[in-house]
């Protein structure tokens, strides 16, 4: 990891217990600034717990998490968001009883300037013109694909340095899955560091630069995405 790079996420020897089935037992990994790093693993491997730990939703028992050369272990979520980390959560998690525009607005909750928020909402509408048409619709009444757009747009509203993306393809139709990966690539091309958690091995490794494989709360493989695709651990993690 280059110390000068300012949007690198480093996780060191992390132990977290969220629930019995999804624990971390000494996870160390890094998401390098400006790159897409993916984390592969089956259900119960600890992926969700790792995301929760990074976001400050679950406090680790041991180990440290650092972002942009500063420790963030144990900080409450709003302070972690303030460092420039945003999340596109698993299952979209749009606020169902809020309008599309209110959902977007919440993504920029810590942005004090109303003008900046308005500009970013405009950017989201340019990226997803359907959302502009439906700006006053309650997000809960939209289709899964549209909710994914709201969730992605919302995740970008804070202009994050690091975006955590948790299982974006879960529950989406194959065509939308492909679109989703294209969007992730484009987000990264804007200079945003991406940490992508996925179960969809093939397409994930195509889009990612680096990858790790998590199994039973431990990192069992890691390296460049193209090399990782060929390793035994990836297959074992899923089919073993």
């Amino acid at each position: 990891m280059s110390a000068a790079n300012n949007a690198t996420l480093v996780v060191e020897d992390l132990y977290t217990a969220y629930d019995k089935a999804d624990v971390l037992e000494g996870v160390s990994l890094a998401a390098e600034a400006g790159r897409i790093t993916c984390l592969l693993g089956s259900n119960g491997s600890g992926k969700t717990t790792l995301i929760r730990s990074i976001l400050g939703l679950t406090r680790p028992n041991r180990g440290r998490i650092a972002f942009a050369d500063a420790e963030i272990t144990g900080l409450p979520p709003h302070k972690i968001v303030a460092r420039g980390i945003a999340c596109i959560p698993e299952g979209r998690k749009v606020f169902p009883k809020l309008t599309v525009e209110e959902n977007l607005r919440l993504g920029a909750y810590q942005e004090a300037s109303g003008q900046v928020v308005a500009e970013r909402i405009e950017e989201a509408y340019e990226a997803f013109p359907q959302l502009r048409e439906r700006r006053d619709q309650l997000a809960g009444t939209m289709s899964g694909g549209e909710q994914a757009m709201v969730s992605i747009g919302r995740g970008l509203m804070s202009a994050p340095k690091l975006l955590l993306i948790d299982e974006p393809s879960l529950g989406l139709a194959p065509l939308l899955v492909k679109q989703n990966f294209d969007i992730i690539r484009r987000i990264n091309e804007r200079g945003i560091t991406v940490f992508l958690v996925e179960q969809n091995v093939r397409q994930t490794l195509e889009v990612a630069h680096y990858g790790y494989v998590l199994s039973k709360g431990r990192v069992v493989a890691g390296g460049r995405a193209d090399e990782l695709a060929a390793t035994q651990e990836v297959h074992e993690a899923y089919f073993g």
């Binding site: 409450p76 709003h78 606020f95 919440l106 993504g107």
Partner: peptide, 25 residues
């Protein structure tokens, strides 16, 4: 208001609201 939006967000989904940067407490 922004405060009201935050209150409604917390009411609907506390954890997601917190990951938006809302100070829950």
């Amino acid at each position: 208001t922004k405060l009201g939006l935050a209150i409604r967000a917390v009411a609907q989904d506390e954890e997601t609201a917190r990951t938006m940067g809302i100070d829950f407490t």
